[in-house]
Simulated scan of single mutants.
Amino acid sequence: MARAGQVASDGSGRLAYGIAAGILTWAFPPSLVDEAVAAAGRTEQRSRSLSARTMVYHALAMWMYPSSGYEEVMRRLMLGLSRKHHWADDWRMPSPSALTQARQRLGPAPLRLLFRAVAPTVAGLALPGALEPIALDTLTLGLPDTTANREHFGACPRVRVTALGHCGTQAVLDAALTAPSAGEGGPARDLLRSLGKGALLLAELDTLSVELWRRAAAAGADLLWRAGPDWKLPVDRVLPDGSYLSRLAEPGPGAGAEPPVPVRVITYADCGGAVDRLITSVLAPADAAATRLIHAHHTRWRLTDTLGDLAPGGPSPIDVLRSRSPELVEQEIWAMLLMHHAVRGLLVDPRDLDGRAAAELAALVRTVRMIAPDCL
């Protein structure tokens, strides 16, 4: 993302800024933002020009204007709010240090709580009798090389975002942030709280574990994971649809500490002719045929799509965040997920999807960009 030192533009984009502000306050009404600020204990004891509410919108607007520095983002935001809501007509541009201090006062908690308030749930998206494909995926982003980021995220500062996403609506349901050295199992366990009956969890066994499989199944979800060639999956019984029943056990010294997990294995050739294997907890073909499960896995949502949706003109060039401290890194990522929610989750009512392809959702995003090309 672009950084400080940008030259402020003239007022010709004021209409676009008003549209951008309208998107923000429509998706995240001020009353909802104030509730998140209060729940996080960030309500001001005295009046400030850079209020906590204003700084929440500033954090969101940074993802609307990824090529602008902090001050230019604030200028555009306040021009838009003034046009749309007649806010801050007498507002004056703060100094860069004042903006940084206001971001630090806000912290990540209000944005995290705001995301929890607006993020959809599996139960809210599930159709009666249907398996809702929910993907577990990760995204690693670079960070500015500061002492604070190195101490928290490692010598080469990077942050890993682990998230659950709904494959139909492309909505992010839940997320966890860690340093890459923490591994994927711990954050994935934290996200199991967002699963439940009706979810079909798609993931990659090679980066996870049988222990996580057990936990996810215990949460009430059905599972459909890809298993690489190193996993031993003996044929116990071949089923009518060509899949077979097998047993899944943790490899290595710990194997045998727990009884193997009964699974069903689906083998198929991908478009390039390579053989792939899917394992599922749905053991009976009558409940979900192999072809149906293969198709479900092909719809797998990718967390990198969130950046693609936020970047105008195609795949995002964003691979390094702005923030120079761990708390602000977290703030920036929750803002990213909130803006993705505004684009994906609020442009389309999931109850009206009725199986529409993700390409149709992308067309809606393109429509918004045509209306306000400088906003999204």
Rank of each mutant, 00 (worst) to 15 (best):
A2G: 15
R3E: 09
Q6F: 10
V7E: 00
S9Y: 04
A16L: 12
T25N: 05
V33N: 02
D34G: 05
E35T: 14
E35W: 08
A38M: 10
G41S: 08
G41N: 10
R42Y: 03
E44W: 02
R46G: 11
S47G: 12
R48G: 07
L50G: 07
L50Q: 10
S51A: 09
T54L: 14
T54R: 15
L60A: 04
A61G: 12
W63H: 11
P66G: 03
R75M: 10
R75Y: 07
L77P: 03
L81P: 02
S82E: 15
H85S: 14
W87I: 12
R92G: 12
P94L: 13
P94D: 06
P94E: 07
P96E: 06
P96M: 08
T100S: 15
A102W: 00
P110Q: 06
R112Q: 13
A117T: 08
V118T: 07
G124K: 12
L136V: 00
D137N: 10
D137Y: 08
T140V: 14
F153T: 00
P157K: 09
R158K: 14
R158T: 01
V159M: 00
V159S: 01
R160I: 01
V161A: 05
T162V: 11
C167K: 00
Q170D: 02
Q170R: 15
A175F: 08
S181Y: 01
A182Q: 11
G186E: 15
R189C: 11
K197L: 11
L202I: 01
V210M: 04
V210G: 05
R215N: 03
R215P: 00
A217K: 15
A217R: 15
A218D: 13
A219E: 00
G220T: 10
D222G: 11
L223K: 11
L223I: 09
P229M: 03
P234F: 02
V238A: 14
L239N: 05
L239D: 05
P240R: 13
G242F: 13
Y244D: 04
S246C: 05
S246E: 04
R247V: 00
E250N: 09
P251M: 09
G254D: 15
A255K: 15
G256I: 04
P260F: 01
T267E: 03
Y268A: 03
A269Y: 10
G272K: 04
G273L: 05
A274F: 08
V275A: 13
R277G: 03
T280Y: 01
T280D: 07
V282Y: 03
L283D: 05
A284D: 15
A288H: 12
A290C: 08
R292I: 08
R292K: 09
H297E: 00
T304M: 09
D305Q: 11
P317C: 02
I318E: 09
V320W: 01
S325F: 01
V329R: 06
Q331N: 08
E332N: 06
E332A: 07
M336N: 03
L337R: 00
H340M: 12
H341T: 14
A342K: 13
A342N: 11
R344K: 14
L347R: 15
V348R: 12
R356G: 06
A362I: 01
A363W: 10
A372D: 05
